[in-house]
C-alpha cells in the first residue's frame, strides 16, 4: 500500500500534518504490522495528510530505559529528537502506547516537545468529525483491555471506549479495568525476557479474565498487549473462540 515517507514529502515541498509513529512492533512484528497497515488505511480513507519516518524512525528507547540502560535510551532518544526537530514535526500519532508515553512524557526534558496522540484519541477525533463512518448494523459484544501505558500511566480511559461506542455493540468490561486494569505482563521490558520464577504467567491471568467476560472479541490498544493476550488465550485453548483485535482493526472492519 502507499504510505508516504516524511523525507520524500518534504523533498517535494510538502509538510505532512501528522507523523504516524509506527514503532518497532508496528514495523517488524508480523501481527503488529497488520495494525500499522490498518491504521494507514484508515488515515488514507479519512483523507488525512500524514507520513511515516521510515528508515529514519528509531526505537523511542522505552524498553532500554525501563531495563535500566539509560545510556542506550539517550542514544536513541536524542537521534529521534534531532530528526523530529529537523522536520519541524508538530503532531505525532502512535499505535503503541509505549512510544506514545515516551514521546509525550520523556522527550520534552531532552528538547523534543510535540503534540503526541495515541491512535485511540486520533480515531475518536476522526469519528467525531465524521471523517470515517461506521456501519450501523449491530455487532457482537466486545471486551476492552486497558493497557497500562495508555490507561493508568497516561489517564486515557475514555477515548478508546468512545471509539468502540461508535459501533452498535455492547462493551464488556474486564474484572479489573480502567485504573485497576491488570497488566498483560509485557511492560518494563518484560516482553524481551523470560519471566522470573512464579506460579503463573501474567498474560494467562489476564486471558482468564477475558474468557470470563464471555465475548468473542477482545480489543486492545497496544501491540505488546495483543501478543500477550493472544499467547494467553492460546494457552487456555480458546483461540478458536476469542479474537484479539487492535482498536484500529475493529474500526476498519466496521468502516463504511
Amino acid at each position: 500500500m502507499n504510505v508516504p515517507i516524511y523525507n520524500e514529502v518534504v523533498a517535494q515541498g510538502g509538510q505532512p500534518e501528522i507523523l504516524f509513529w509506527v514503532g518497532c512492533a508496528g514495523s517488524y512484528d508480523a501481527r503488529a504490522q497488520k495494525i500499522s497497515r490498518a491504521f494507514a488505511e484508515i488515515l488514507t480513507r479519512a483523507g488525512i495528510s500524514f507520513a511515516i519516518l521510515g528508515e529514519e524512525e528509531k526505537c523511542t528507547g522505552d524498553p532500554a530505559r525501563r531495563a535500566g540502560n539509560e545510556f542506550l535510551f539517550q542514544i536513541l532518544a536524542l537521534q529521534n529528537i534531532e530528526t523530529l526537530n529537523l522536520y519541524k514535526v508538530k503532531k505525532i500519532v502512535c499505535t503503541c502506547p509505549h512510544c506514545f508515553n515516551t514521546l509525550r512524557n520523556e522527550y520534552p526534558a531532552l528538547g523534543g516537545t510535540y503534540e503526541v496522540l495515541h491512535h485511540s484519541q486520533f480515531l475518536e477525533q476522526l469519528l467525531n468529525d465524521g471523517l470515517i463512518k461506521i456501519h450501523d448494523t449491530s455487532t457482537a459484544p466486545v471486551t476492552y483491555h486497558d493497557s497500562c501505558y495508555l490507561g493508568r500511566i497516561n489517564g486515557v480511559y475514555e477515548a478508546p471506549r468512545e471509539v468502540i461506542g461508535h459501533l452498535k455493540t455492547e462493551i464488556r468490561e474486564l474484572k479489573r479495568s480502567r485504573k485497576n486494569g491488570l497488566c498483560c505482563g509485557a511492560g518494563g521490558a518484560q516482553m524481551f525476557k523470560e519471566d522470573e520464577p512464579g506460579h503463573k504467567r501474567i498474560n494467562i491471568e489476564r486471558a482468564g479474565e477475558v474468557v470470563a467476560s464471555g465475548s468473542n472479541k477482545v480489543v486492545a490498544n497496544c501491540p505488546f498487549c495483543i501478543t500477550m493476550l493472544e499467547d494467553g488465550i492460546k494457552s487456555l485453548d480458546k483461540q478458536q473462540e476469542i479474537m484479539v483485535l487492535d482498536l484500529t482493526e475493529l474500526i476498519l472492519e466496521n468502516c463504511v
Partner: peptide
C-alpha cells in the same frame, strides 16, 4: 541484569530497533 536483555540491547545499539531484522523498517507497508 538479565542475560535475556543482551540481544535486545545489542539490537537497539546496532539496528535502533528492539529486534534485529533484515528487512527495512517500512517494509510492512
Amino acid at each position: 541484569g538479565p542475560s535475556d536483555w543482551l540481544p535486545m540491547f545489542n539490537s537497539l545499539e546496532n539496528n535502533q530497533s528492539v529486534w534485529s531484522m533484515s528487512e527495512a523498517r517500512d517494509a510492512w507497508k
